[in-house]
C-alpha cells in the first residue's frame, strides 16, 4: 500500500528531539500570530460557537456564566495565561478603583529585597523588577484601560511583567517551604520545584501557583471552572489570607478556566 511507504519507522540511531522541538516552535508561532496576548472585550454570544465546538456541554455553562458575568477577555495560550490574565485584570481593577493601589505598590516594592535575601542574584532580578514597577505605576499616571491593553500586548514588557510575577510566586513558596513541601509531587525540594515549574516562562500554572500568588500579593481571586461535568460552572475563591471566610471575600480578579487555559471575566 502506498500509504505504508510514509508510515513512521523508528530509527534508533536518529535523534528525534530536534524535530519535535522544531514542530513545537511552529505551533507556538501559529498561536502567536492568531491570538493577541490580551484581547479586546468579548460577549459570551461572541464565543459560544467556538466553545461549543469543543463540547456541547459548554453551551449550558455559558448560559450559567451569563447570569453572573457581563463579558470577558481572552489571553494567548502560551503557558503564561494565568499570570498574564491575573496581572492585566488586577491592574485594570486598580484603574477603575485605586483604593488598593498604595498597599499593592508598597508590597511589591519590598519584594525585590526579599527575593535577593532568598538568594536570587540582583543582576538577574533588576530588569524584571524595574519593568514590573513601571507597569504598576502606569495605573496612576493617569492610567487608561486602552494604554494597559497596549502595554500587555507589547511582548517584551508583557513577558517581563510575567517573569516578575513568577519570581514573586517562587519567593513565596520558598519562604513558606515547610508548609508547601507537602503539595509538591515527585522527589523534589521546593526550590527545585520553583526552578522547574514556576520560574521558567511558558510553564503552566497549577492550583499551587494560584494559591501562592493570591497569598503573596494578598489579592483574592475567583476562578470559574468550566469543565465537562455538570451543567454549571464551579466557582472557587482563593482567599488572600488563611483566616478570611471565602463567602465574605470580594475577589479583585475573576478568571475563567477551561482545561489548560485561563481567560478574564467581568462580573455584572
Amino acid at each position: 500500500m502506498a500509504s505504508e511507504q510514509h508510515a513512521f519507522a523508528y530509527d534508533p540511531e536518529k535523534n528525534y528531539d530536534e524535530d519535535i522541538m522544531a514542530q513545537q516552535r511552529q505551533i507556538e508561532k501559529e498561536i502567536a500570530e492568531t491570538q493577541p496576548l490580551v484581547s479586546g472585550l468579548f460577549t459570551f454570544d461572541d464565543i459560544v460557537e467556538e466553545y461549543t465546538s469543543e463540547d456541547a456541554v459548554y453551551r449550558h455553562k455559558i448560559e450559567d456564566l451569563k447570569t453572573r458575568y457581563a463579558n470577558m477577555r481572552k489571553t494567548r495560550g502560551d503557558g503564561n495565561c494565568f499570570f498574564r490574565a491575573f496581572g492585566f485584570a488586577f491592574l485594570e481593577s486598580l484603574i477603575k478603583d485605586p483604593t488598593d493601589y498604595s498597599r499593592f505598590l508598597e508590597l511589591v516594592t519590598k519584594s525585590k529585597d526579599e527575593l535577593i535575601a532568598l538568594g536570587f542574584p540582583q543582576f538577574t532580578l533588576e530588569d524584571f523588577y524595574d519593568t514590573f514597577i513601571d507597569i504598576v505605576k502606569q495605573v496612576k499616571s493617569p492610567g487608561t484601560v486602552e494604554k494597559l491593553v497596549e502595554t500587555f500586548n507589547d511582548q517584551g514588557l508583557s513577558d517581563y511583567f510575567v517573569v516578575y510575577l513568577r519570581l514573586i510566586v517562587s519567593g513565596f513558596l520558598q519562604k513558606k517551604e515547610d508548609e508547601y513541601i507537602h503539595f509538591i509531587d515527585g522527589e523534589r525540594t521546593v526550590k527545585q520545584f520553583c526552578s522547574q515549574e514556576v520560574e521558567p516562562m511558558g510553564k503552566e500554572s497549577d492550583h499551587i501557583h494560584i494559591v501562592a500568588l493570591t497569598k503573596a500579593l494578598e489579592v483574592p481571586i475567583r476562578v470559574e471552572y468550566m469543565d465537562r461535568e455538570g451543567l454549571t460552572c464551579n466557582a472557587f475563591t482563593f482567599s488572600a489570607s488563611d483566616t478570611s471566610d471565602d463567602s465574605l471575600v470580594k475577589p479583585a480578579v475573576s478568571l475563567l478556566y477551561r482545561p489548560g487555559h485561563y481567560d478574564i471575566l467581568y462580573p455584572l
Binding site: Y16, M21, T124, G186, S195, Q196, E199
Partner: peptide, 14 residues
C-alpha cells in the same frame, strides 16, 4: 526532549 531527568535544571530568566 525525551530522556531528561525530571530533576534536571531548565532554562529560566533568572
Amino acid at each position: 526532549p525525551m530522556g531528561y531527568e525530571t530533576s534536571a535544571e531548565r532554562w529560566s530568566p533568572v
